[in-house]
Design a protein around this nucleic acid. Structure first.
Length: 563
RNA sequence: UGGGGGAUCGUCUAGGGGCAAGACAUUAGAUUUUGGUUCUAAGAACCCAGGUUCGAUUCCUGGUCCCCCAGCCA
């Protein structure tokens, strides 16, 4: 029985499953599957499907299988199988011992095909691919029957056996379902069931040279596994009559219900494997795990948590309408998670030197900083303070605009967890005229515990002590695309090149961070106070820290400044 | 111009013959040693036209627009 947790409204799929249970369909059993083809890495679109399939199984007390849909040897590789398992697990889902491969069903599939021929429901066609295409007709005109359509059962049986035996070259023959060449649904115009592919399959090697198509293998795989609800994306709606035809004609014991939903599209990125592969191959990104990529591996490296992704998928919902989700929703999900979990830390990305004139030279003192105001259990840490510090360039303005609450000549600002300082001068480079340092004085009583600690100033800024700071490289990311992808569908024949965002990666080679960050684990996530959430990139070494910005903090000042 | 789907705030998603709900985003205010968080408030939508009806966004009819299908890909 469904646990309607989160009072979230029931989507149309869950509603249908509920109805099936009430009608005692499938004996109230709920069994789903996530069936990726191992021809690429998983992305956030797959995450939606994963959350849906595994989520429904869990909610209804059912099961969800992981199935690799590996019926095309020319595209699939073992390393993707590994990667897929890793990503599904990372997302927090478990298929127990139910890892299946369509390729494990090749013999059973073959036997089903033979029975279809024996029933007169399939035949070996010897037309070329081009001929088949022209016989198929068009969207508006019916197709024509192949001259081989009525060849004898025995001849088809013999040919099919010899196809399997390797007697023919690729493309010489194909096994077709015998349905209706005049069907208004082109998928029903005698679709191919088996084709010859003399290619080595990553799992079955050269054991086979004929391979079943998706339309034949998928319904039967579902049936073999006792899948009750077979969830897929909208473009397969047209295939459902064929899915049902295969189920019926093969007389399976479990006739699964195919249900289609709209795939996930995210604004300002691409989601098709083909386009993602193109980005990788053209070197537009570093690889499949480039933090700009919408792949699970990319998001993970970027600093996203599984929890945030799951949460995002839940908020996105499930429906049949084509939609494009704004990045803001994804960003909200990760901020929400990291706000309560990520330790705060101070880091200066665009350093500007500040000299505190009335602070004794050579003196150092510790100030206490809160690790996470949202979580007292994370405690506090000591930070070293000294006469020379770095602040953010943005936190000083020689000619401050209205409502600028930070440092400017004559004005005061609070240094986070430390003193209030006042700007008393600006040093400029003699040649360039650029500001090279700020001169300040501090109020010795303004630190926490001091007599002036409660004194209010408009702004509080972050800082690092120059003698104590550790250098780091920081990588800032923006969306991959300037334009929004219109369609996530994999195979548009001709479609305009997406406009890549030239600012998608900005590297800041000379930043300064708190010394405590020197020894944190790869992947650790932090909030750089007032800036955003960052995580330590695997490119980091003992000599060089590299941080990725997962997402910036919301910034209402930026909105005030440039409307 | 065949067939299959779809159309509700800027974006997602509910709902349903009788005040159109939530989330994100936006705006305003309060709190705040993060211009963060949190809290409060506000603005913001039923594709169009007829019909049925006391009443239609919902039902009916006819349009319009969008997406998918002519792989031996999935």
């Amino acid at each position: 029985m469904a646990t309607s947790d989160h009072h979230s409204p029931v989507d149309f799929i869950r509603a249908k499953i509920l109805a099936d249970q009430e009608a005692q369909r499938f004996g109230q059993r709920v069994h789903t599957r996530f069936p990726p083809e191992p021809n690429g890495h998983l992305h956030i679109g797959h995450a939606k499907s994963i959350c849906l399939n595994f989520g429904i199984a869990r909610e209804f007390g059912g099961l969800c299988n992981l199935r690799l849909d590996d019926t095309n040897p020319t595209k699939e590789h073992l390393n993707y199988v590994q990667s897929i398992q890793e990503d599904v697990r990372w997302l927090g889902f478990d298929w127990d011992d139910r890892l299946y491969f369509a390729s494990d069903y090749f013999e059973a599939l073959y036997q089903s095909a033979v029975r279809l021929i024996q029933k007169g429901k399939a035949y070996v066609d010897s037309l070329t691919a081009e001929e088949i295409r022209s016989y198929r007709g068009t969207l508006t005109t019916p197709g024509m029957e192949s001259p081989y359509r009525d060849r004898s059962l025995d001849e088809s049986l013999d040919l099919f056996a010899r196809m399997r035996g390797g007697d023919f070259e690729d493309g010489a023959h194909v096994l077709r379902a015998k349905i209706d060449m005049a069907s208004p649904n082109i998928n029903m115009r005698d679709p191919a069931l088996y084709r010859i592919r003399k290619a080595t399959h990553y799992r079955t090697g050269d054991a086979w040279c004929i391979y079943p198509t998706y339309d034949f293998a998928h319904p039967l795989s579902d049936a073999f596994e006792g899948i009750t609800h077979s969830l897929c994306t909208l473009e397969f709606e047209d295939h459902r009559p064929l899915y049902d035809w295969v189920m019926r004609e093969c007389e399976v014991s479990c006739h699964s219900q195919q249900i289609e939903f709209a795939r996930l599209n995210l604004a300002h990125t691409v989601m098709s494997k083909r386009k993602l592969l193109q980005l990788v191959e053209e070197g537009q990104v570093q690889g499949w795990d480039d933090p700009r990529m919408p792949t699970i591996k990319g998001l993970r490296r970027r600093g996203y948590t599984p929890e945030a992704i799951r949460n995002f998928c839940e908020r996105v919902g499930v429906a049949k309408r084509d939609s494009v989700i704004e990045m803001g929703l994804l960003e909200h999900a990760i901020r929400e998670d990291l706000n309560r979990s990520a330790p705060r830390v101070m880091a200066v990305l665009h350093p500007l030197k500040v000299i505190i004139e009335n602070y004794p030279e050579g003196q150092t003192e510790d100030v206490e900083a809160v690790n996470n105001p949202e979580d007292e259990s994370q405690g506090t840490r000591q930070l070293s303070f000294s006469r020379e510090i770095y602040i953010e360039q943005d936190d000083f303005r020689e000619n401050p605009p209205k409502k600028f609450f930070r440092l400017s000549p004559g004005q005061e600002v609070r240094l986070r967890y430390a003193y209030i300082i006042r700007c008393i001068g600006v040093e400029k480079d003699a040649h360039t005229g650029m500001i090279s340092a700020i001169r300040c004085t501090f109020d010795p009583e303004s630190k926490r515990g001091g007599t002036q600690s409660a004194r209010k100033v408009k702004g509080t800024i972050h800082w690092v002590s120059i003698p104590h700071a550790v250098p780091a490289e920081v990588r800032l990311y923006e969306t991959l695309l300037l334009s929004s992808s219109s369609s996530g569908v994999d195979c548009e024949p001709q479609d305009s090149q997406p406009v890549l965002n030239p600012q998608s990666l900005q590297v800041l080679p000379m930043c300064w961070v708190e010394p405590g960050l020197r020894s944190v684990a790869i992947g650790s996530r932090f909030q750089f106070e007032r800036q955003g959430y960052f995580c330590l990139d695997p490119d980091s070494s003992a000599e060089k820290l590299v941080f990725n910005r997962t997402v910036p903090l919301r910034d209402s000042w930026a909105k005030i400044e440039k409307p």
